[in-house]
Each structure stands twice: as structure tokens, then as C-alpha cells.
């Protein structure tokens, strides 16, 4: 447990210090959401209708920004190589890094969501619903992102390739995340969508550590 916590706290420290990404991601999220009303126009009802989708897309794009840093810096400065010598398996190191990444990038976004909700004229109950779906769905986004980051870790300046790989994988999460808030044509579709969203998150949490660890091992070859 102690080695796991060591990786977790180290990554959290790195993300929140100068050169870390926490604040950048948060500001990007708020700004992306805030410019939408300028493009869509001041129609309050329309904004409220599109609000959950705008919030989800803003979250998805902001999370993509920081994913490249998840393994790349540790790979380049030799830390990852040395970390592989720990008795803690690489898969668990990946889990620790994903947890730290979620806490330092996704969690601040979720906390800041009420600000966007006000800008987009969302009702209180809808805001809470969006926050809840983000809590359930963002771990899946981070997990898919971790696989993309691990696969591209050895490509020099591969920062833009990872998002291209990750975006298609994120589509189901996005669909179910948004429909868990606004439902759609079918009655009671929200709850079903929420369950699917939770299912995606659980599935990705199970597979990602192995897939990402395998990709990292191949990158070191």
C-alpha cells in the first residue's frame, strides 16, 4: 500500500506545482464552456437545452489537454524505467497514476461545473445531475486517455496523436453521459444511460491498467 500511495502523492504534487497542468485544464474548461453562449446566441432556453452537452464536450476537450503528460515526462527522464524495478507491479503504478490524474484534473472540473451551469442557464436539479454524471463518467475518459498516452509515449512530440486515438473511444461515454442528463426521446432513458455510463467506467477501470502497462513495456523496448 505504501508504494502505491508514494506514486499517488508524488503525481499529485507534480501536477499541482509550477509546470503542472491542474490549473491550465481548469481554466481551459471554464473558458471553453464560457465562449459557447457567444457562438450560440443569447437564447436562454436553447442554452439550457444544450447546456449538458456543452459541459460534457468542454470536459472531454480539457481532459485531452493534459493526458499527454500522464506518462511522457516519466518516460523521458528515466523515472518510469526506475519505477518498473519496484516490487509494485507496473499495472498498479498505472492505477496510481490514473487516480492521481483524475484527482488533479477531472475533480477540479467537476467542482467548477456550477460556474458553467450558471453561464449556461441550467436549473439546479439539472446541474446536480450533470455533476453526478461527470463523477461517474470522467474516470472512463481518463482511462481511455491513459491507453492512448501509453501507446504514444515513445513517439517524440506525439502530443497530438494521443487525442486522435482517444476521441473515437470516448464517443460512447459522451453519448451516455449527455443522455443521462437530458434523456432524449425515450421515457426513463436517463437512468438506463446512467447505468451504461457506470458500466463503461467499470469496464475501462478493469482493462486499462493491463493495456497501458503492456503499451509502456513495449515502448521501453
Amino acid at each position: 500500500m505504501k508504494p502505491f500511495l508514494a506514486v499517488l502523492t508524488r503525481d499529485m504534487k507534480l501536477a499541482t506545482r509550477i509546470g503542472g497542468d491542474s490549473l491550465t485544464v481548469l481554466l481551459f474548461y471554464i473558458m471553453t464552456g464560457a465562449i459557447m453562449p457567444f457562438a450560440i446566441g443569447p437564447d436562454k432556453d436553447q442554452l439550457a437545452q444544450l447546456g449538458p452537452a456543452i459541459i460534457w464536450i468542454s470536459a472531454l476537450l480539457s481532459l485531452l489537454l493534459a493526458l499527454d503528460r500522464l506518462f511522457r515526462l516519466d518516460h523521458e527522464d528515466g523515472s518510469l524505467l526506475a519505477m518498473r524495478q519496484a516490487s509494485l507491479p507496473l499495472e498498479m503504478i498505472v492505477v496510481a497514476k490514473i487516480c492521481a490524474h483524475w484527482v488533479t484534473t477531472a475533480l477540479p472540473l467537476i467542482v467548477a461545473t456550477p460556474i458553467l451551469a450558471i453561464l449556461l442557464n441550467l436549473e439546479i436539479d439539472q446541474t446536480l445531475r450533470v455533476i453526478f454524471t461527470l463523477l461517474v463518467g470522467t474516470p472512463a475518459l481518463i482511462c481511455f486517455g491513459a491507453i492512448g498516452a501509453a501507446v504514444t509515449v515513445s513517439i517524440k512530440r506525439g502530443g497530438l496523436i494521443a487525442p486522435i486515438l482517444i476521441l473515437p473511444l470516448s464517443i460512447p461515454t459522451l453519448i451516455f453521459g449527455v443522455s443521462a442528463v437530458s434523456g432524449g426521446a425515450i421515457a426513463n432513458a436517463q437512468d438506463a444511460a446512467l447505468l451504461f455510463l457506470a458500466g463503461f467506467t467499470l469496464l475501462s477501470l478493469v482493462f486499462t491498467p493491463f493495456a497501458a502497462a503492456l503499451a509502456l513495456k513495449m515502448a521501453a523496448e
Binding site: L14, R17, G20, D77, G78, A82, Q85
Partner: peptide, 13 residues
């Protein structure tokens, strides 16, 4: 123990 040609030091810690 492995020490490679890049030292594995984090500059912000």
C-alpha cells in the same frame, strides 16, 4: 537497482 543515462530526477520536487 538501475540508473540509466537519464537520471530520473523530477525537477519540481
Amino acid at each position: 537497482h538501475i540508473v540509466g543515462y537519464v537520471p530520473g530526477v523530477k525537477t519540481t520536487l
